[in-house]
Design a protein around this nucleic acid. Structure first.
Lengths: 117, 117
DNA sequence: CAGAATCCGGCCGGATACTG
DNA sequence: CAGTATCCGGCCGGATTCTG
């Protein structure tokens, strides 16, 4: 029945999603991984010179904890760690594309963009 | 060579968009306004008891500054201020819906949702 | 190479009180 | 009613140093 036609609409889903991609560098990191597996240093290089090691480590850990990225450690010296997107992580790409597009269309008056190619 | 086949992909657009909707309450506030104009106290009531006056004022000011909401002040006593979405603000609704859906599908194991109805 | 640890400034966001 | 003003704790995020 029509009760609570629109009620409160707290939109927890939005907050849950923003909790996951809202980190300062997270969308960037996810975007880097969309084309495949990358090593820690490779991600660093692609987001450089803006992100610090500490931040990259931290955000990768959180993304891993949230089930968006896989972390594979090779037991060797020197260390080698590879990161890739999980299914869940991949499912975010279309949304990130849209966020990027919106930014491009509505905010892009004096900044550079690199959404799609 | 396929010059800069994928280059860096900084995705500034994403960051620009998240700057605008990334505030803790902003997506909620925008969502409340999607059905039409609301007064300050009405927005408060809908987001209550979670947001504070200070935060609502602050986020509304930022949304106004970013051109997402209109602010109409009635010169009367007691004061009356109405908020509504701009075109730009409305254009975010589909994206917010997607963010909400994603949260619902991927994070919704033990939280309540109210995306659409 | 991929981090862990430490230090630190800033500012985000909440609580409370006051005002036109 | 719709704000300001003030205080304040926490934590976000950067810089730097050390390590297996």
């Amino acid at each position: 029945m029509g009760e609570t036609p629109q009620k409160y609409k707290y939109s927890w889903g939005i907050e849950a999603t923003l909790d996951v991609i809202g980190g300062k560098w997270k969308p960037l990191v996810i975007y880097q991984l969309k084309d495949g597996t990358l090593r820690f240093s490779q991600i660093m290089a692609r987001v450089q010179p803006r992100i610090t090691q500490r931040m990259l480590t931290k955000e990768l850990r959180e993304l891993e904890k949230d089930g968006l990225v896989n972390r594979k450690v090779y037991a060797q010296v020197p260390p080698k760690v590879e990161y890739s997107l999980t299914e869940k992580g991949y499912s975010l790409i279309p949304i990130l594309d849209q966020l990027c597009d919106w930014g491009y269309e509505h905010m892009g008056d004096d900044i550079e963009f690199q959404c799609e190619e």
